[in-house]
């Protein structure tokens, strides 16, 4: 079923919207949640919550990209779960991803005011726009979809070590870009 047909089901409050969403995007959502949380039960719970959130937000929201809309909800749900259960130290995927993102945190600059997440997204968008397509895709697959480095290496047909170096260079580039813009986290 086409995305706009599924969205119409949400608008007419037809519960088959949830079934159709699960049919088309269930695997996609589960993949993202698993990449982040690494625990199947938690990931499945997140995916179910995602359907409910979608049901509550549509209407009034009419997403332009249904895939991105759902993916964003899964990500948010996953980080909430991670934060809630952080003490249990079960979430390898997220731990690794967050420790890698430390490389992108800019050094303290002159401007002492902390940037809002929304504003920060704009900077990241600008930075992504300037990257080569392949680098941008790699960055988004790693830090938005949460795909593992070794999987990305396999897709690019390079070694995991080479991919690790590639990702490190990308993170340093982002850090330099944010510092240049005077961003303080």
């Amino acid at each position: 079923m086409e995305d706009n047909q599924i969205i119409e089901l949400y608008f007419s409050r037809d519960e088959s919207a949830l079934t159709e969403t699960a049919k088309k995007y269930g695997t996609f959502c589960l993949r993202i949640a698993m990449n982040v949380l690494s625990v199947k039960e938690d990931a499945e719970e997140c995916v179910n919550d995602t359907y409910h959130t979608a049901w509550n937000q549509i209407p009034p929201t009419r997403p332009d990209s249904f895939r991105a809309f759902l993916g964003r909800i899964v990500r948010n749900c996953s980080i909430s779960k991670y934060r809630a259960r952080h003490a249990k130290k079960r979430f390898n995927g997220m731990e690794v991803m967050l420790s890698e993102l430390n490389d992108c945190v800019p050094a303290q600059g002159d401007v002492e005011q902390e940037i809002e997440a929304k504003e920060l997204s704009k900077y990241i968008n600008t930075w992504l726009e300037g990257l080569k397509t392949e680098d941008r895709v790699l960055f988004v697959r790693r830090y938005w979809y949460g795909e593992e480095v070794r999987d990305l290496a396999r897709q690019c047909e390079i070694s995991a070590t080479q991919m690790t170096q590639k990702m490190l260079r990308l993170r340093r580039k982002l850090k330099a870009f944010l510092e240049e813009k005077g961003v303080v986290l």
Partner: peptide, 17 residues
């Protein structure tokens, strides 16, 4: 905070990836 900001990147980048 970076993770949260990355969540909100443009949809076209998400589709592209």
């Amino acid at each position: 905070k970076l993770y949260d900001a990355i969540s909100d990147i443009r949809e076209e980048f998400i589709e592209e990836a």
